[in-house]
């Protein structure tokens, strides 16, 4: 033998999965939502997505080199962070702000914690919340620019649907519109105002389905998340239908679908046990609804997920599976 044989510890077989492949699958799953965003917001969507992706990848590469890490950007995780951050921005946001958010997400929230695998918080969400707190006006200005004319006629515009509801309840004490089949369809296909990635629940669900099939996510977090939101909003709605919209609205409006399918399921920042995932998803749902109903912001998905990220290690610890054989030992 001219070449030396490879010797390693068992196992000598591998499923063939890789971090890069998982990331690539997530990117593929994001394509329908990117298409919907581009359809709804046109140039602004392309502008923000490319700005965020480029800024994320560049800052990942530079900071890794600077911190002397041997990993490059080829694991594609920075691309996902970029896309997801862009998805969480309003279409009219200036490019430079998107870049600032991207650099913050990658350098502060990811690389300073040790890089891929070590960040406690979802970098894209942390970037978004930083922007939201730093530039509240820009981050909550919803232009109707770019919404294609045929859909714009009946589009729920000028503010996000959740914003409309919140303002109306606060000022008049009444709901601004009724939620019926027509509005549901509007929200479902992507005819609403909001951040560029959250417009179309249908596109997001399609991506989620792909990730489920490719085993990038398991059903536990999205189902627990959406289920809790449904339950919570159903209780409110049944209790007081004049003040609360029905669960259908809560499911389809705002960033819930994006959050439940793509953000809360981020592997690094969510629990590893199945039971933990259920707890995590339920916690996200509860916090989201608390913010939506009683919080200062109309939407609470980002805050809910970030808060749950913080308790992920705790959830992992609390939901540690019972070791096989951890039973009372019969005397032998």
């Amino acid at each position: 033998m001219s070449e030396l044989a490879i010797v390693s510890s068992s196992p000598h077989a591998h499923s063939g999965s890789s971090v890069q492949r998982i990331m690539l699958d997530v990117i593929i799953a994001l394509v329908p939502a990117m298409a919907a965003a581009t359809y709804a917001f046109g140039w602004d969507a392309i502008r923000l997505i490319s700005a965020c992706v480029l800024a994320c990848v560049a800052s990942e590469g530079v900071s890794r080199k600077w911190m002397g890490r041997d990993l490059g950007v080829e694991d594609l995780s920075a691309v996902i962070t970029g896309i997801l951050l862009a998805f969480n921005l309003p279409p009219s946001l200036p490019t430079w702000m998107a870049v600032v958010g991207s650099v913050f997400a990658i350098v502060i929230c990811k690389q300073l914690f040790g890089g891929i695998g070590y960040n406690p918080f979802n970098p894209a969400l942390a970037g978004r919340v930083m922007l939201l707190i730093s530039f509240p006006v820009f981050m909550t200005t919803w232009s109707t620019w770019g919404i294609p004319a045929p859909l714009a006629v009946d589009a729920i515009t000028t503010a996000t649907p959740l914003g409309l509801v919140k303002t109306a309840i606060a000022t008049t004490g009444e709901l601004p519109f009724t939620f019926n089949g027509a509005t549901a369809l509007q929200l479902f296909v992507g005819n609403q105002n909001g951040c560029i990635g959250e417009v179309s629940a249908a596109a997001l669900l399609l991506g989620g389905l792909y990730m489920l099939v490719r085993r990038c996510i398991s059903w536990h977090i999205p189902v627990a998340y959406l289920g809790t939101v449904t339950l919570f909003s159903a209780i409110l709605w049944l209790h007081h239908p004049q003040q609360n919209l029905n669960p259908g609205f809560h499911l389809l409006a705002g960033g819930l679908m994006l959050g439940a399918i793509f953000m809360a399921t981020d592997m690094v920042t969510s629990p590893v046990t199945k039971r933990g995932m259920l707890v995590f998803g339920a916690g996200c749902g509860l916090l989201t609804m608390l913010v939506r109903k009683w919080g200062g912001y109309p939407e609470g998905v980002s805050f809910a997920i970030l808060l749950m990220n913080a308790v992920t290690p705790l959830i992992n610890r609390a939901t540690r599976p019972r070791v096989f054989g951890a039973v009372k030992k019969k005397k032998a």
Partner: peptide, 17 residues
């Protein structure tokens, strides 16, 4: 080297492989 070791870069781990 007598073979191409592929694993944890630690003497104890390498010795046991």
């Amino acid at each position: 080297r007598k073979f191409d070791y592929n694993g944890v870069a630690d003497c104890r781990a390498a010795h046991a492989t």
